[in-house]
Amino acid sequence: MATYLVSMLNGLAMGSLLFAIALGLSLVFGMMDVLNLAHGAVYLVGAYVAVALVADGGGLAVFVLAVLAAAAAGAVLGGGLAALTRAIPHHLDQALLTLGVALTVAELLSVAFGNEVHSIAAPAAVAGSVTVAGETYPVYRLLVIGFGMVLAVAVYVLVERSQLGSVIRATVADRPMVSALGINTGRVLVGVFGAGAALAAVAGVLAGPILGAQPGLDERVLLLALVVVVIGGLGSVRGALLGALVIGQVQAVGAALVPEYASFLIFAAMALVLLLRPAGLLPAAGTAVRV
């Protein structure tokens, strides 16, 4: 039972990170129909920011600095991607453009940091472990779970309860109508694109002590985020949260029980959801029609 608990906690930590990554992907897709294939590369930028700043376990202040630096880098990248994709009319061409950016950024990172696997130490202050139900568990992962909870609540309040959030949700549902009401949807799009990319980059730093940084990680993260978005429903915040929690659990418990087939389980979960509910578990209003 205690080993299950550890797996479930690992799954929660993974789910927290996946939520932070998938949120931007989902909202950008819901708003602009842009599949941002560079999202994994943005995550990897964050991971390498952590490598550059806190690789050998600096203090908590340096770690916070790394988070802020990654957020800034992610926001800049996201803003640039938004500007580039809005200059192109066709959705496929937009996806291809982000694919080109993804290849370029990933390759630039491997030029700068080499091809070896980098591991990142958790900040010294939270590097220890505590006893949870008789099993030792790293404090850092508990903090990641806490971050996920705070993020979920903050995003819920922002998107579902605030005025800005209602503009965002309305833009997902019917962009021309919001535009006709006199709201600059272009600014909303760039803002959400930038904020989503910043969150992905922050997740890259936070995931550093768990997943490390290496070439190819961007693709794995992009795949997981895509599966989360597909399972949860496109353009939906609650869907992204539910999808992230499901995939986090499937991955962690699957890795503990049947390590050989863990990756297959994720695909099976996605296939099952698509079979029963093709629009995802909690699709955003107005997007179900398009799927």
Binding site: L37, H91, L222, L226, V227, V230, F264, F267
Partner: peptide, 18 residues
């Protein structure tokens, strides 16, 4: 369209992981 694109990517990467 783009949803198909996303699903093929997910299928391709899943097979790769397997």
């Amino acid at each position: 369209g783009i949803v198909f694109f996303m699903l093929t990517l997910a299928i391709g990467e899943s097979v790769h992981q397997v």
